[in-house]
Amino acid sequence: MAAVVLESDIECPECGYRKTERMPTDACQFFYECESCHSVIKPKVGDCCVFCSFGTVPCPPIQKGSGCCSPGSQ
């Protein structure tokens, strides 16, 4: 099994600003505030977190194949 990547470049869908962020390993990040335009983004329908929707790398639980890290939180 490949090593889990803990950093992802997240891109704001509102303004296009990109930033490298460290992903949490024990929870999904459902909200993310863009540092540039201050929009609060949420995951797309069907995704468990903002990294799965707007990041270059999916969240650690998805990478591990263990599925969504916060069932029922949506």
Rank of each mutant, 00 (worst) to 15 (best):
I41L: 07
G16T: 10
G46D: 02
S53H: 08
P43F: 00
M23A: 03
M1I: 12
C49G: 01
C15E: 04
E21L: 15
M23S: 01
V40H: 08
K42Y: 08
F51W: 10
D47M: 03
C15N: 12
A2V: 13
K44Q: 12
M23K: 00
Y17W: 13
C28E: 14
A2S: 13
V50C: 06
K42W: 04
R22H: 14
V5S: 05
R18H: 04
E7P: 11
Y32N: 04
D26K: 12
P24T: 09
A2H: 12
P43A: 00
C34V: 09
C34K: 04
V45Y: 11
L6S: 14
K19E: 15
L6G: 14
F30P: 04
D9Y: 07
F51K: 01
C12H: 10
E11N: 09
K42Q: 11
C34M: 03
T25L: 01
V45I: 04
C12W: 06
F30Y: 07
Q29L: 10
I41T: 12
H38Q: 14
E21G: 01
E14H: 09
F51Q: 02
C37V: 14
Q29D: 14
T20G: 04
I10S: 02
T20P: 05
T25N: 05
C28M: 02
C12P: 12
V5I: 10
